[in-house]
Design a protein around this nucleic acid. Structure first.
Lengths: 137, 137
DNA sequence: CTGCCTGCAAATGCTTTGCATCTCG
DNA sequence: CGAGATGCAAAGCATTTGCAGGCAG
């Protein structure tokens, strides 16, 4: 939570109850949550926060680099607290919907050289492999 | 075009004017087109086809494996004719919006081993690197 | 003929926005 | 106090769907 407070101060933005509550939800679950799921979780915790604020805050967290946005082709987006500077890639099972994160150094270096030789300055990336997971084969 | 006709016959689906026209647009541009752009291009060619049909046909082409769906975070999707069995990955410039395709064998093999060790059966994948291209740096 | 397709318009569902009001600092 | 945040409801948009009429095979 201190991270958020600091980041907000740095940008001269107010640290509000709503922002704290939303960030807390994301911090604590360490899951990919949709705006809807965040709202539901907030209600469970007796925080009644407007959906517009949820959306605005999630966008803010992404901008501050504290959260990452994901799109698993479900028709809506998911958000997850950024874990350090680590980039996670995903295996998405189209049968059961399960999402597995992974991080592979060999992949990092291959990508690095691709990007470098294209003279491209990377900011974010998304690697999603859709298919059937071990359990659904 | 014969590919489409054959694929449709195989699935016992009718080969209609609309399907032909839409597939032709995709075949001939070899670009990533949105449903809107397909519709516009159809009008330029004096084909007046309902947007619903455009969407339905694009989805069908994807299902038949003749087209690929892309999402470059623009708020809508793009489609491109599938070029052989090749998988293309993308560098997306967030400044000028330019999309560069690439294909790198080293990447293929790294991904292959990741997938294999997870016991995952891949169907499609999306690799998108967002950042600033050489010209916009 | 018969089933699948097409068009149109209406409906969906996620996300964004306008605006009056309230809060943080 | 004043800038920015919040809530609500309405608006936006890409995409989907229902249904009456058409076309391919």
């Amino acid at each position: 939570m201190e991270v958020l407070r600091g980041e907000l101060r740095e940008h001269e933005l107010p640290f509000t109850h709503q922002r704290e509550a939303i960030a807390r939800v994301l911090f604590e679950t360490n899951q990919h949550l949709s705006a809807d799921e965040v709202e539901t979780e907030l209600l469970d915790r007796d925080h009644q926060i407007g959906k517009a604020t949820v959306y605005r805050t999630l966008a803010l967290l992404v901008e501050l680099g504290l959260a990452t946005e994901h799109d698993f082709d479900e028709g809506f987006r998911r958000y997850q607290m950024t874990v350090g500077a680590a980039q996670y890639d995903h295996l998405i099972c189209t049968v059961c919907g399960d999402v597995t994160q992974f991080r592979e150094e060999a992949l990092e270096s291959v990508l690095e050289s691709i990007v470098r030789s294209a003279g491209f300055e990377p900011i974010t990336r998304q690697i999603k492999i859709f298919g059937t997971c071990r359990d659904c084969t």
